[in-house]
Design a protein around this nucleic acid. Structure first.
Lengths: 160, 160
DNA sequence: TAAGATTGATTAATCAATCTTA
DNA sequence: TAAGATTGATTAATCAATCTTA
């Protein structure tokens, strides 16, 4: 029961670490160049876009993306000033707000989604076999369950 | 030749995306709690620690970690004020500086390395089979080669 | 008092301008 | 002029304090 990593584990960790950094960097650059938004903007827009009524409470956004509430609030303010989202009063609970995607926001997220999908295909799935995709999926779920042990027998929700 | 992703690709991308975010968050928190340094501090310290003479030029640090020079300079200034590194004149080239790890820096990186290795084993390698490790390594190298096509027949250096 | 959220201050990352020596 | 690096201003992320309503 040693805490050390063996040679192939160290090699794999390094390769994985560098790969995901380069991957993020590449996707971020393309997002900025193609749709003119940052990764943070994209994360907010895509969660709104995928929501039932194209709107979410500020707190929900934080839960989905994994941000603290003040980061959400500042981010929403910046996006609001750029016309990507608006805030609306919340009838159910006067303490809360709805964050709603605007038509400009929808336009931006659609463009981003298209470009991003192309990029992900080009630099990622195009060089993976079907088996490798399956393995990576299994690995990811197992590591996630390790980090956040699932409550009862539920699966992890993969809410990001 | 479609740019779309199929269902299992979308599922895998989502799982992979969330996994690496949670993994980073977990490692960052443990680093801060156990060794009292940030991921940025760790990256600088580990590259100095792994360098030949425990020192690097500012520019080399940027190349290794993938940061622009002003980020390196600001980061080094903050670390210098906390006693983790020092700057030394560079004899070869009076425009340059050597960044040198201090004994406090060495102490911090050794502690960080030990804790981090334990964490990586716990949440990552402990739940992966040998085959999965090999697959992940192959995937990572292939994706990296796709992002930064290797010059001539050389392999990617994995310099991060 | 707690929940939902915002605000302002601090810290970190990015961008453009500048400084010094090759 | 270019290479190596720093500086100061801007933008973004984090932290602590605060505000309003449940």
């Amino acid at each position: 029961m040693t805490a050390e990593l063996n040679a192939s584990e160290r090699e794999t960790w390094r390769a994985f670490f560098v790969m995901r950094r380069q991957l993020e960097l590449t996707l971020e650059r393309r997002l900025q160049a193609d749709a003119g938004i940052s990764s943070a903007d994209y994360e907010v827009l895509i969660s709104l876009f995928e929501a039932e009524d194209k709107r979410l409470r500020a707190g929900q956004i934080g839960d989905i993306i994994g941000w603290e509430k003040s980061r959400v609030s500042h981010q929403i303010s910046r996006m609001e000033s750029r016309g990507l989202v608006t805030r609306q009063e919340c009838g159910d609970d006067a303490r809360g707000v709805w964050v709603v995607i605007t038509s400009d926001g929808r336009r931006a997220v659609l463009e981003a989604l298209r470009d991003r999908t192309t990029a992900i295909r080009e630099v990622f799935f195009d060089v993976l076999t079907e088996d490798e995709v399956a393995t990576l999926n299994a690995i990811s779920i197992r590591v996630l369950d390790r980090i956040n042990p699932p409550i009862c027998a539920e699966q992890n929700v993969l809410t990001g």
